[in-house]
Design a protein around this nucleic acid. Structure first.
Lengths: 111, 111
DNA sequence: AAATAATACATAAGATTGTTATGCATGTAA
DNA sequence: TTACATGCATAACAATCTTATGTATTATTT
């Protein structure tokens, strides 16, 4: 999350959503995908990503499996059933957050 | 911020925007205003608010002045010039954040 | 009358989540 | 051969928040 601090707290949501869309991904792939999708506006640092992935797995929201590709080991993650449910919850939370912020910071339509 | 962790990092933005709209406010008033505007969906805790206000003042974004009201002391805050500029920056950051999140989590219009 | 809630400020311990730095290992480009 | 890209991981530090606590006055309940 090499960005402004508004993104604090949204990393988990981003990870879950990307995995929901892409089925399975490995850590490095996630960092690249986010950079690509946001045109560099959001860069996830490894120091934030890997601990987050480990926590999600420890919480039972993700499964992981190692895969050998060209003498390199990739750790692929995918959503568990529990993770799929949580993804929906996180999306609702994100929508609520955006709505709530808009009621707080949007100039009132005073007319 | 007695809410979900997405709001982490947005407190400063909220404070600045409320002060921009209302001219001057005191701490307790801010907590009540936020609760009212969000229909209870967002509750700012005092343990988060007061340190945030102190930091904003220390950073020169806010001015404060004490006022006696019915044997009670209120500490009113208002934006400094620097604070007004920063408010604009924070608003831009918030807009960018929302846009960025939408590119990340919105289902692609695959048609 | 006494207890509780609301108003109004403040701080301190601890948790969470992030940054920055570092480490290991392989493959490719300068 | 030096740097960069790929790929994982952790540790020290910083920022921000929660929860708990403290003080003090006023209003409302019981």
């Amino acid at each position: 999350m090499k960005s402004k601090n508004l993104f604090k707290g949204s990393l988990t949501t981003i990870i879950l959503k990307l995995l929901e869309e892409n089925g399975k991904m490995y850590g490095y792939e996630i960092t690249q995908k986010v950079k690509e999708l946001t045109e560099g506006k959001l860069q996830i640092t490894e120091g934030a990503l890997y601990p987050a992935l480990h926590k999600l797995e420890a919480d039972g929201l993700l499964d992981s499996e190692l895969e050998q590709v060209d003498n390199r080991v990739r750790k692929y993650y995918k959503l568990t059933e529990s993770g799929q449910k949580e993804t929906i919850v996180k999306m609702q939370e994100m929508n609520l957050f955006v709505q709530t912020m808009q009621t707080l910071i949007n100039p009132k339509w005073s007319f």
